[in-house]
Amino acid sequence: MSVTKLVTSRTILGAVENGVLDLDQPLPQLPGVTELRSVSVADLLAHRSGLDHEKREFTRTPHTRRVYSNSGYEILGELLAQRSGVPFATWVAEMLFSHLGIKRKMRGSPAWGMHGSLRELLAFAFEAACPRFLSLELFAAWSRSDGIQLPGVLPGYGFHRDNAWGLGCEIRAAKDPHWTLPDSSPDTYGHFGQSGSFLWIDPAIRLGAVFLGQERFGALHKQLWPELNRALREVGKNAQRA
């Protein structure tokens, strides 16, 4: 599900690095959106465009609130395909998956359509922690807060005055409640999905974790994830000491 957005955003930033897309230039027309407003690729990546969660219409003025938007990520996939003449799934395979030894193809929505195994999610997690296929500048933009303090709702965890986001990753910052551990560093980044899966990296302790779920996200995940993450972190710390 939405852990897919990490893959999509890394692919989009790879296209930016190759000069196919521009991060900050206003887009004259978004695919499937009738109203013209000044938004950029960066706005879409960081959920600050004002687009609705699912519909291709603006529900907020851009840059005033962080509206978590599947439609924005689907538009990003279409934009890249239009600009390059190459299907988005091919970009994912050649820009990212082929380098990570992942033979799977992305099928379905760039916002939530990725399927894969735990081994494949781990391969991506290592790249998410220690980038080899993206410049350090763009990796920082992906994995750190964009510095724009916007209010918004984190799905499943409610309203936050600073719903911090990078150009792809959700940033823990001061959010409480949150799906990572309460004492995770504010710089912790990653994503969770409605499939009950997650990926997080805490750069302060140089540890991360992934979980591949089989049950739709709900109250039980919110109850059990703190203890699961605590156990995963302890395993990681023990491995570091060994």
Rank of each mutant, 00 (worst) to 15 (best):
F124R: 01
L150W: 10
C169D: 11
G147Q: 13
E17H: 04
A111D: 14
E127A: 02
D176M: 12
L199P: 02
S38K: 15
V86K: 00
S195L: 04
A111I: 12
T61P: 03
L13R: 08
P226H: 00
A125Y: 02
W225A: 03
L51S: 00
V33F: 05
D187F: 13
V20I: 15
R48Y: 13
Q29H: 13
S38T: 14
E127R: 03
M114S: 06
R241L: 12
T64V: 05
W225I: 07
E234C: 10
R37E: 05
I75C: 13
R83N: 11
L122R: 03
G208T: 05
V41P: 08
T59K: 06
R10M: 13
I201T: 00
S49K: 12
A42P: 01
L96Q: 08
F124S: 03
E17V: 02
A140H: 13
M114C: 00
L138A: 04
G158M: 13
G190W: 00
V33W: 07
Q214F: 02
S197T: 02
P151Q: 06
L134K: 03
L121T: 00
T11R: 09
Y73I: 10
P203D: 05
N238M: 14
M106F: 07
A89C: 09
Q82A: 14
G166A: 11
L154D: 12
I205N: 06
L100G: 04
I12M: 11
H115P: 01
E170A: 14
Q149C: 13
R241T: 09
A239T: 11
R161I: 07
D22R: 13
D24V: 06
F139P: 08
F211S: 02
F217D: 02
G158H: 14
G158T: 14
N238L: 15
H47Y: 11
D176L: 13
G152W: 04
T90K: 08
T8R: 09
A140Y: 02
N229W: 02
R216A: 09
V67I: 10
K237C: 13
L96E: 01
K103R: 13
L138K: 00
L122A: 09
P31I: 09
R48C: 09
H191S: 04
R119S: 12
G190L: 02
D187A: 15
R230G: 05
V33K: 09
Q25E: 15
G101K: 02
S109I: 08
I12F: 14
S195D: 06
G208S: 03
G14A: 09
E227D: 15
N70S: 10
L220F: 06
E78L: 11
